[in-house]
């Protein structure tokens, strides 16, 4: 087996979907922070989106399974905290995927968040929306309602 560099590990991990938002993979979500390869062993560093993200264990098992399938004999997953996950890491392309999936993407940056500004409805694009609760079905989402299309929707918190 040739020794793949970090980039090729990341390319493999782009095939691992986020368990709660399967339309995104764990690399573009910013959960994977890096990887070290030593022969047939690989160590992958991941960081949680939220302190209590319950998907971390599922993600670690998916990472292990995917890399073992790719031929690595030893896979370690380390949780790291040095860099603090932020929605600022989500590219415009990722935000568009979220919107198409039906989740309003974070708008702006976490330091200048549009908290009090109405979020655009991911279905009709209207801004006649209200936040119903800052707490949603997962830690990363808030509950909103669109008065234009009269549908509830979820929006990614901007943190």
């Amino acid at each position: 087996m040739t020794t793949p560099d970090e980039q090729s590990i990341l390319t493999i991990l782009e095939g691992v979907p986020d368990p709660e938002i399967p339309v995104l993979n764990i690399v573009e979500m910013g959960i994977v922070r890096g990887a070290d390869v030593l022969g047939e062993s690989v160590t992958v560093r991941i960081t949680p989106t939220y302190s209590g993200c319950p998907a971390m264990h599922a993600i670690a098992m998916d990472v292990e399974a995917r890399l073992k399938y790719a031929g690595f004999s030893t896979v370690q997953v380390q949780t790291v905290y040095d860099e603090v996950w932020t929605t600022d890491w989500l590219s415009n392309e990722v935000r568009e995927k979220l919107r198409e999936y039906g989740i309003a993407p974070p708008e702006g940056t976490s330091s200048q968040r549009a908290l009090d500004r109405a979020v655009a409805c991911p279905r009709c694009g209207g801004r006649a929306t209200v936040m119903k609760s800052y707490f949603g079905s997962t830690a990363c989402k808030a509950l909103h309602y669109c008065n234009d299309c009269e549908e509830p929707f979820e929006a990614f918190k901007c943190i």
């Binding site: 939220y50 302190s51 209590g52 319950p54 609760s133 800052y134 707490f135």
Partner: peptide, 14 residues
């Protein structure tokens, strides 16, 4: 109910 469970999860994760 969802809010309290969310906050609980953040604290247990912390």
């Amino acid at each position: 109910d969802i809010a309290l469970a969310n906050i609980a999860l953040d604290l247990v994760g912390r």
